[in-house]
Design a protein around this nucleic acid. Structure first.
Lengths: 188, 188
DNA sequence: CCTGTTTCAGAACGACTGATCCGTAACGGC
DNA sequence: GCCGTTACGGATCAGTCGTTCTGAAACAGG
């Protein structure tokens, strides 16, 4: 019978994700990953195949944590109330070091392609969910019939990325109320 | 008489900036910096003091390039026409690899503090310029008297950051017209 | 030509990096 | 206890990293 593992995979992944949010893929070094996760090097390679595998696992876990936000946009009925709930939730969260997905966009030319493909899919999905709710809102008469929901979804996606970035350079400066007020100007 | 330099400092800085936009501070390695700039290692250390100095010079030059945008917001009279011109200009530019300043935000825990302080000042100045024009617009009656110009400036700053990030993961997807339409909904 | 100075090309250096390796520990089954 | 298996701690490895160093090149002046 083999020696039992002393690490818990999910805990390792979660801690690694926290470090990757702060330092990025390239900046988070193995020595530090080993330290914050408590995982020994042999096990890191055995369990994840190496740094890339650990990053991918951390990213996947992080996106799963964020999926509670996406779930809001998937509620029926689609429409403005979903968008309002989405932003209420998003803005209730703290991103002092940014968001792993958004941060990783800036490492496009550094991370493995497979990893970046995950980010691209995440961004496209997010935008599609926003667009779906905007389209439903327009159909229901919550938005003007002339509203360009495609464009609006794109801009809101960009705004989401920006909010997570803003929180890094000016922490605590953009409040839920302020963003909400802007959105009400948009969504009417 | 000393041997003449074969490099042109501004050209070196500009090329280094382009690489730093793509790879970031940590990801842009000296070997590649030497290759794309054509600057030999001795001169790099002599002229810039090392990688950090080159990055700071590249960032400063980059921000100077971007200052033409800031200049639009400093025109008199302050108001909505400045904002419209600002966005028309911003959105006429291409940021396929992002913006060096915004990209560097995600390297907060990696770059030297001095460098990050430059980013913080840039962000704060940008926001202040936006705020100034919004406040003038409100005073002139172009915006409702109840408009929260502080909050709006913050959100627009975040949006700017987001637009530069969006262009990396979904190039060419957010058009000037679409962003402009959203702004018209906001600025009325 | 020689001299002094600065810049060049690129090698060498020491530290750092992700990955591999080795001896030992921990376990159940016999 | 021994055995086989897997995970541990941490040393080692080969390559890469930013920085320093060295000999040669390029120049004007004497």
């Amino acid at each position: 019978m083999a020696r039992p593992r002393t690490y818990v995979r999910d805990e390792v992944v979660s801690r690694a994700a926290d470090l990757f949010v702060r330092k990025g893929y390239e900046g988070a070094h193995l020595e530090e990953l080993v330290r914050v996760t408590g995982l020994n090097r042999f096990s890191l390679y055995k369990e994840f195949g190496g740094k890339e595998g650990l990053f991918q696992a951390a990213l996947d876990a992080y996106l799963e944590r964020m999926d509670s936000l996406g779930a809001i946009l998937r509620r029926e009925p689609r429409g403005l109330s979903n968008l309002r709930a989405f932003y209420a939730d998003l803005l209730s969260r703290d991103f002092p070091h940014g968001c792993l997905a958004v941060n990783t966009i800036r490492e496009k030319h550094v991370v493995p392609e497979r990893v970046f493909a995950t980010i691209e899919r995440f961004a496209a999905d997010s935008e599609e969910q926003l667009r779906g709710n905007l389209a439903a809102a327009r159909e229901r008469g919550e938005l003007a019939a002339t509203t360009d929901v495609d464009g609006l979804a794109r801009v809101l996606t960009a705004l989401n990325m920006g909010l997570m970035t803003y929180g890094v350079v000016a922490p605590g400066r953009a409040s839920a109320q302020q963003v909400g007020a802007l959105l009400e100007r948009v969504l009417r």
